[in-house]
Design a protein around this nucleic acid. Sequence first.
DNA 1: TAGGCCATCTGGTCCT
DNA 2: AGGACCAGATGGCCTA
Length: 243
Amino acid sequence: MDGIYLRDHLQDGRLNSVSSTQNELLQKMTSEHLSRNGDKTPSKYKLKKQVTEQEVQQLRLKINGRERKRMHDLNLAMDGLREVMPYAHGPSVRKLSKIATLLLARNYILMLTSSLDEMKRLVGEIYGGHHSAFHCSAVGHSGSHAVHPGNASHQVHPLLGSALPSSTAATLSTTLPGLTSIRAPHALLKTAPTPPLPLGGGFQHWAGLPCPCTICQVPPPPHIPITSAGLTRLSSENKDVMK
DNA sequence: TAGGCCATCTGGTCCT
DNA sequence: AGGACCAGATGGCCTA
């Protein structure tokens, strides 16, 4: 395939350059090609031209292969992102597009951040602002504390239970009305999506145990505020994508 | 058939 | 100098 593209472009005379250094070969090839078209190629250039063509082709193949590998790696990373998204996976379910995957991931992170903030607030209420032993659970910030919804090895915090209490969900919907608008682009799926994963997954931060995580060692990163306006904007953005 | 999505090629730029 | 990254162009495939 590469050879076909290369050949076509050479015939079009459009092969200009690859980079400031690599293009010398290609430009030499082009000029020789043009002169060849202008008048008959001298036979003494024949061997040199063939070598150059091979060099150019090899270089082009090499560059194309690198780019192909780079894109494949990028797609693998995209697949990895799809796997941890709260969506149905399976052969019968159409794969999320790249743009949908990225937007969904963003919304998902925002949603988890909001849930975490709400949990922190509730924990603070329960313990009256005292610094409880499981301080780590109240530290979550979306950026550095990765949440892995697809990881089944998550342990549930002994004090918080396996899932958010119903009051929490209700509080979320009342205090963060925009949160309910954070929806995965179901329209992009061709089959009925599965419900989002429960938020019961906890971190492995246990009461009374020293925590080695970087979150507990360093100040938390700047927090991205989630406003209803922002959520609204998110929804509108998704609408554009989900059209 | 139009539009969306994707893979690939390609040339330019930046970085190491 | 070579590789990584990026964006534009192009063509194929699929779906409504």
